[in-house]
Structure formats: C-alpha cells, structure tokens
Write a protein that binds this DNA or RNA. Structure first.
Length: 104
DNA sequence: CGAATGACCAAGC
DNA sequence: GGCTTGGCCATTC
C-alpha cells in the first residue's frame, strides 16, 4: 500500500461532521513528519476524497487550490454541521477526529 | 530521467 | 519562548 493510497483511505474514513489534520493523517499513514505530502497527495487527488475535512494543526483551513477556495470548504463544512468562524477556523476540540486505533 | 515542489509539523537553537 | 531548519513520498516539468 502506497503512502498516497493510505492517505486517501484515511481521508475517506473521516466520519461525517468531523475534521482531522494533515499531521494526524500522515502519522496514521506511517509518516509522523510527512504532513507536507498529505497536502500534496490531496492536491493531485482532489476529487477522490473529502479534502474539506482535512485542515492543519491549528484548525485553520490552509487550502491553496484555486478551484476549491476556502469559501467553498467553509460551506461544505457548515453543511455537515461543523462551525467555521469567519476566519476559517474550526474548533478541533469539538470537531477534531483523532482515532486511537487504526481500523485497517 | 534528474530536479524541483507541494494544502505541514516538531525538534533545535 | 519565538524563530529557523530539517524531513518525509508522490507527482509534475
């Protein structure tokens, strides 16, 4: 299983109404410091996973894709019942998804 | 085919 | 305690 496939698998596994971080996904995929590539993988597979549920460690939307702007991500998250502040910040204490075990 | 780059995180001064 | 640096894989040019 490639790192890319694991990342996509994990992102697709994020429960409805929850969000997680690049670092968490990278760690679950086997790279505790590979958060950078999670962004890269999602960038090249933007249509294969619910990328809007993935944000950075500070609960901030760091998306740079012009085709999928922050405003769209905010709307998608709010559609799932997640509160997003006007500064594109999400409360990770309430909506963060940090599984203890890997269901693979 | 070699080199550069990409939506991050945490350790080290 | 804030700023700088290193590091990881896949994809594109």
């Amino acid at each position: 299983m490639n790192f890319k496939d694991k990342v996509l698998e994990i992102v697709q596994k994020i429960p409805y109404g929850k969000v997680t971080t690049y670092g968490t996904i990278a760690a679950l995929a086997g790279l505790p410091r590979g958060g950078r590539f999670v962004g890269g993988v999602l960038h090249f597979n933007i249509d294969d996973a619910p990328w809007h549920r993935v944000i950075n460690r500070h609960g901030f939307i760091s998306t740079k894709c012009l085709d999928h702007p922050k405003s769209l991500q905010k709307a998608l998250l709010e559609q799932e019942g997640i509160e997003v502040s006007r500064d594109f910040m999400v409360n990770l204490d309430r909506y963060g998804w940090f599984p203890y075990v890997d269901y693979s």
